[in-house]
Design a protein around this nucleic acid. Structure first.
Length: 105
DNA sequence: CCCGTGACATCGG
DNA sequence: TCCGATGCCACGG
């Protein structure tokens, strides 16, 4: 029995996101068992104690809009980072149709 | 110890 | 179709 709190689970899921793909806060929340805790998920990333350990840059809003990111220049850095990993971008948003992570690989 | 807050998402009118 | 309000978890002051 491993007691793992929601927050930890979110980090765990985030670490499972394959390179070149992105997940949404709501999706992570849903996989965590709290479909309405998307806001909490964002809150965890914000105070993320695992900053370099968790690819929070692979997590975007449901629209594909890049939000948050406290590192580098913020959104700009996040966008460039995803672009380098092979994520398809559509203007200032991610093309979820092609780069949205589909649950378990 | 108590209160407020924060990188979203979804429903109703 | 657009706008407003609400829900969730954990952390900081």
């Amino acid at each position: 029995m491993k007691i793992i709190i929601f927050k930890e689970k979110i980090y765990s899921l985030t670490n499972q996101i394959p390179k070149g793909k992105v997940a949404t806060y709501g999706q992570l929340a849903r996989l965590g068992g709290k479909p309405k805790a998307a806001r909490a998920v964002g809150g965890f990333m914000r105070t993320n104690p695992n900053a370099p350990h968790t690819p929070c840059h692979r997590v975007v809003a449901k629209d594909g809009s890049l939000t948050g990111y406290s590192a580098g220049n913020g959104i700009s850095t996040k966008k460039t980072l995803l672009l380098k990993e092979g994520v398809i971008f559509r203007g200032e948003k991610v093309d979820l149709e092609k780069s949205l992570w589909v649950g378990v690989v």
